[in-house]
């Protein structure tokens, strides 16, 4: 096989073909198990949670109710994963000097458009975060939008100047989240319990879902700061 042609071929070695056969076989082995919708429970756990969501959590968006509250421990863990990775990147990329050339000058259009786009980005992110229990949005989406804003600024040549403030906010919001969750044990019956009464009569309004919007704002800030710090670590790496 000529080397020029060989490089473009998918099956360079017989091992590749062997793996392809293995995974092809797996496909037909697994496929019957994942099609079909009958479950042994007559009503799946998620469907039961959907029924209970309006009365117990006060949130019209059942996904939010599940994410932030019914399975809030998963979400606390997930926020910790982001925190973990931001810390790990700081550790791994923060050491040693790097000889990569600084990137070329930022794009003219990006540099000028940033002031135009920024306020809209921020406002949309904020709206999405605080309306997480009413609309298909929430802290993750809003936080990522805020982080997208930071990415835009980085592309436009700006840099995170107050790293300490960023890390302070990161730690503060994370610990507030954990503290609110822990205080639920004594003040609301269970971990992540509802410290703020739910207003069932005001179903579907902003101040109706008890603690969910508060937690989602924490999640939003946390996700935003973590992703900014992840970007920032990679960016510093390239320029150091």
């Amino acid at each position: 096989m000529s080397s020029k042609l060989g490089k473009k071929r998918l099956f360079i070695s017989p091992m590749h073909l062997l793996w392809a056969i293995v995974f092809g076989g797996l496909f037909f082995a697994i496929l019957p198990a994942i099609s079909g919708h009958e479950s042994i429970r007559s009503e799946r756990v998620g469907e039961s949670l959907l029924v209970q969501a309006p009365a117990q959590s006060g949130a019209p968006n059942a996904v939010t109710a599940v994410v932030v509250w019914f399975r809030g421990l998963d979400t606390l863990g997930e926020v910790s994963v982001l925190f973990l990775v931001a810390a790990a990147l700081g550790m791994i990329l923060g050491r040693g000097k790097n000889s990569t050339e600084p990137e070329s000058k930022p794009n003219e259009i990006v540099a000028h458009a940033k002031t135009l786009v920024l306020p809209h980005f921020m406002l949309t992110g904020l709206y999405i975060t605080i309306h997480g229990h009413l609309t298909p949005g929430g802290g993750f989406q809003g936080g990522v939008m805020a982080a997208g804003m930071a990415l835009l600024l980085i592309l436009a040549g700006d840099r995170v100047k107050h790293l300490h403030a960023l890390h302070f906010l990161e730690g503060l919001v994370g610990s507030l989240y954990a503290l609110v969750a822990i205080s639920g044990i004594w003040f609301a019956g269970s971990f992540l319990g509802n410290l703020i009464p739910i207003k069932t009569e005001a179903f579907g309004t902003l101040f109706s879902a008890g603690i969910i919007p508060v937690l989602y704002i924490f999640i939003g800030i946390k996700v935003g700061t973590e992703i900014i710090s992840i970007y920032d670590n990679f960016q510093r790496r390239e320029e150091a």
Binding site: G46, L50, A53, P54, A55, P60, N61, A62, V63
Partner: peptide
């Protein structure tokens, strides 16, 4: 989409747990 308009009607929506 499992965003309820009326808290008393809870059928016809998809399962929210896999989304979470």
């Amino acid at each position: 989409v499992p965003i309820l308009a009326d808290p008393t009607v809870t059928s016809g929506y998809v399962d929210p747990l896999p989304h979470a």
